[in-house]
């Protein structure tokens, strides 16, 4: 473990650009590397890897490792695991960071299994213990009811997936210097056990839940699929996305893909409007990162009011039409 040094960020490329979460990880990784007095490097896989190298350096990387084989242009678990584990065995990073994305969630645990490291998933904060120099990862557990801190004392690399939009993005400085290193090892085709047959983009009505600046969510209190239309209408007027709690999805009032919470999506919009949501932690954990939570519930004791910044104690049926109408009016004004 004494030979393991430096911080390595697994970089993601989305639509030919560095993913926002990668820029956040470069910011966090830079700080950790400075505290350790070691290097920050980034791994960029895919044909854009080389051309984005300078950009990653501008965002804080000292070294960019890249393999521009087009095999990496579409995520393949087997190929990525082999490439990343190959690099880790050579570069021996002390710390490795991933975004808590569909790719990070697949790759990090697998890589951890292969390398025998110590991994904490879905982290909200990272720090270096000044005494031991261990990475201290903070993550939600028990559906957000509690926070745990974790360390890996001997296992290397110390790995973490970090929830997107949690840490501030790195600042760009185009005068920064760094080097780009091409990975020479070729992927052994015999490791490719899983074939990606097709990728299907799901068309969503309106705005995508994870990207939306406004989310309007309905809970069991909405009562029926028909009444859920009122929630959708408010979301539409605000140009926002529709969300729901697990019971609502289980009832089939909305598709499962709209579930916000521990077993669904994690969102952090500017405004999260929770209608008829009691506020079980399993749901709250999915929206706690919102700038402002607005709660509408007839039960003044509902837990949702403990996490909301704005509240309205009322039966939603009596206020939602007026609220929607007024917002429509203010929007057009």
């Amino acid at each position: 473990m004494d030979t393991a040094k430096g911080v390595l960020v697994f970089g993601e490329i989305v639509d030919g650009k560095l993913a926002p979460v990668t820029i956040e990880l470069l910011g966090a990784g830079r700080k950790l590397a400075n505290e350790l007095g070691e290097e920050l490097s980034v791994l960029l896989l895919g044909s854009k890897g080389g051309s984005l190298g300078q950009e990653a350096i501008a965002f804080g990387a000292d070294t960019v490792y890249t393999d521009t084989d087009s095999i990496f242009d579409v995520y393949n678990s087997d190929a990525y695991t082999q490439a990343a584990s190959g690099l880790c065995k050579k570069a021996l990073p002390a710390v490795m960071l991933f975004g808590h994305t569909d790719i990070g969630c697949d790759l990090a645990p697998r890589l951890n299994g292969r390398l025998g490291g110590g991994l904490a998933m879905d982290c909200l904060a990272l720090a270096i213990d000044p005494a031991t120099k261990f990475l201290v990862s903070t993550r939600p557990v028990y559906g957000g009811n509690a926070r745990a801190t974790m360390v890996a004392k001997a296992a290397r690399p110390q790995m973490a997936t970090v929830r997107p939009k949690t840490l501030p993005a790195a600042e760009r400085n185009d005068s920064r210097q760094g080097k780009v290193v091409m990975i020479e090892d070729k992927i052994d085709p015999s490791v490719m056990k899983i074939k990606v047959m097709e990728r299907i983009k799901e068309e969503v009505e309106g705005v995508k839940l994870e990207d939306a600046e406004v989310v309007v969510s309905g809970g069991r209190g909405i009562g029926s699929k028909q009444n859920f239309e009122m929630v959708k209408e408010l979301a539409r007027v605000l140009g926002g996305a529709v969300g729901a709690t697990r019971p609502v999805c289980d009832e089939g009032w909305t598709p499962a893909g709209l579930q916000v919470g521990q077993s669904g999506k994690v969102v952090s919009p500017k405004v999260y409007i929770a209608v008829g949501v009691s506020g079980a932690m399993a749901h709250i954990t999915g929206c706690l990162g919102s700038k402002c939570i607005v709660a509408i519930n007839k039960d003044k004791e509902a837990n949702i009011f403990n996490v909301a910044q704005l509240g309205l104690i009322a039966d939603y049926k009596e206020v939602l039409p007026a609220l929607t109408a007024k917002l429509k009016e203010l929007k057009t004004a």
Partner: peptide, 16 residues
């Protein structure tokens, strides 16, 4: 309640 809803709307519009 309608007035309350209107007051809430006025607050929300400032946030979005």
């Amino acid at each position: 309640l309608v007035e309350a809803a209107g007051n809430l709307a006025a607050r929300i519009i400032k946030l979005v």
